[in-house]
């Protein structure tokens, strides 16, 4: 892969730092009146999700990271790996527990999600922002209680537990925001 010099650093650029793929969040150019210029760079480690702040001399360079994001269809979980398929090529990829992380709670078979590939292997998986999932377990709904107010826990088909309004019943489909884990609305079956 190519190298990027500090003057090419901009937000979203993917580089390798300490062996890990990172995405540049911010690059600040700092130069004293006379003398060495620096780039203070905030970058997100795409493996750990942690944000690093590092300072480079102007003109230093980092290796480009072969990182891409692709829409893929989630196929199934074999107990150890989650399997995904590229819709155009039908090429399949398997992702381990570390790269799937909490996203596993929102993955429904056949759904499209976003898989981040690093050197061709899944690095991270993100579900669509909104997903529709079936309630598999919750206390019986209170008839007529459609007013605002109380919530109760409900287990969804993927295993996620969210808070839903009191009037909902098992078997109903709800729309959920996967970024916050919050109930959005009742969805059509």
């Amino acid at each position: 892969m190519a190298n990027y010099s500090t003057n090419e650093f901009r937000s979203g650029l993917k580089v390798i730092l300490d062996g890990d793929p990172c995405s540049i969040v911010e690059n600040e150019f700092v130069k004293p009146g006379k003398g060495q210029a620096f780039s203070r760079v905030r970058m997100k480690n795409l493996k750990s999700g942690r944000v690093w702040e590092r300072t480079f001399k102007s003109g230093e360079s980092l290796e480009a990271a072969d990182v891409s994001e692709q829409n893929m269809q989630y196929l199934y979980n074999d107990g150890e790996y989650w399997h995904f398929m590229e819709p155009d090529t039908f090429e399949q990829h398997q992702a381990d527990k570390v790269s799937v992380g909490d996203t596993a709670l929102w993955l429904r078979e056949q759904d499209t999600c976003i898989v981040t590939l690093f050197n061709g292997s899944p690095l991270a998986v993100a579900a669509a922002n909104h997903v529709d999932l079936e309630i598999t377990q919750t206390d019986p709904g209170l008839k007529g209680d459609t007013a605002q107010g109380g919530t109760k826990p409900a287990t969804l088909s993927t295993g996620a537990v969210i808070k839903v309004p009191l009037f909902l019943n098992e078997g109903e489909i709800v729309s959920v925001d996967t970024r916050t884990g919050e109930y959005l609305s009742r969805a059509k079956k």
């Binding site: 700092v30 130069k31 004293p32 003398g35 060495q36 620096f38 203070r40 300072t55 001399k57």
Partner: peptide
């Protein structure tokens, strides 16, 4: 790094 680079970095940041 050189003495000048270290001084510039410490001063700037």
């Amino acid at each position: 790094e050189s003495r000048a680079t270290c001084l510039d970095l410490i001063f700037s940041f």
